[in-house]
């Protein structure tokens, strides 16, 4: 298939790849390392310590924010997975239907729309209908944003599927709905799972849209972290950031294991 001479990695390629990965990972590694620094001063290495993790347990506001973010993330990711999967099925299997262009337009726009605009727009809607801002408004906002990512992942999986499998099931007497449930759904399940996890992490990550759509007293974790970060580097912040990084890393490992055991294709985990 691929000529050996071309498949080989030239020195230039290897170096650029290595530098690129170092650039991507080094700051994160440093952040995690410093979260174990016993000294309060960032410039001084005071030995390894779990002190800042202990202090986190007493930070009521931070814990509340983390709990809020987790609940928002689970609700938004679940709703987004449902809606995003439906949208992907409609686009990949629905043929040309009324509103198709509108829907694909509305699905791709939020992927790149600057967050300040999406956030402002949603807030103005919530104010106009006099909705009480807080948990549910953030869930709605995050669902809207993340369902688009789910739709893209599931849709590219559906596009890569062999449709003759569905047709065979229907030839054998399955109704379209039954064929979908028995044949298609198991095949796209890894993409749906990956979509849920991506939606969850995006929701856990979002600062701007949550800032616009939340109400007083219900700060999410990024809002809380942001207000601390503006005041400068603090070891407690390093600790909470390290915890978030570990949580997300575990999710990714889980996602790749699910994909692997389900025999999914490798692009199931590719967000775009």
């Amino acid at each position: 298939m691929r000529a050996r001479a071309l498949a080989g990695l030239s020195a230039f390629n290897a170096v650029s790849l290595a530098l690129g990965l170092a650039f991507l990972y080094l700051p994160i590694v440093i952040l995690v390392a410093y979260s174990f620094n016993a000294s309060r001063l960032v410039a001084v290495w005071g030995g390894w310590s779990l002190r800042w993790y202990g202090e986190l347990l007493h930070d009521r506001a931070m814990l509340d924010a983390a709990w809020m973010s987790l609940r928002v993330g689970v609700c938004a990711a679940t709703a987004a997975t449902l809606l995003g999967t439906l949208a992907a099925v409609a686009l990949a299997r629905g043929g040309g239907f009324l509103g198709r262009t509108l829907m694909s337009g509305m699905l791709y726009a939020p992927l790149v729309m600057p967050e300040v605009m999406t956030g402002l727009a949603l807030l103005l809607l919530f104010v106009a209908v006099d909705a009480e801002r807080g948990f549910w408004t953030v869930v709605i906002a995050h669902t809207t944003l993340t369902m688009c990512f789910v739709a893209v992942i599931v849709q590219s999986r559906l596009a890569g599927l062999d449709r003759s499998l569905e047709e065979a099931a229907m030839d054998l007497g399955c109704s379209p709905a039954r064929a979908f449930a028995a044949v298609t759904l198991p095949l796209i399940a890894p993409a749906i799972a990956a979509g849920w996890m991506l939606a969850f992490t995006l929701s856990l990550d979002d600062l701007v849209i949550a800032s616009f759509t939340t109400g007083p007293g219900s700060a999410t974790l990024p809002i809380r972290i942001y207000s601390e970060v503006r005041l400068g580097v603090r070891p407690e912040i390093n600790a909470i950031c390290a915890l978030v990084i570990v949580a997300v890393a575990l999710l990714i490992v889980a996602a790749s294991l699910i994909t692997k055991f389900a025999g999914g294709s490798r692009d199931a985990a590719a967000p775009l």
Binding site: L26, P27, I28, I30, L31, Y34, V42, L198, T201, L204, D205, L207, P222, I225, Y226, V229, G232, V233, I237, N238, C241, V244, I245, V248, A249, L251, I252
Partner: peptide
């Protein structure tokens, strides 16, 4: 997949 905000914060550290 790692938080955007956290990655920016990581750079402030550096």
């Amino acid at each position: 997949w790692t938080s955007f905000l956290i990655r920016i914060y990581a750079w402030i550290n550096v």
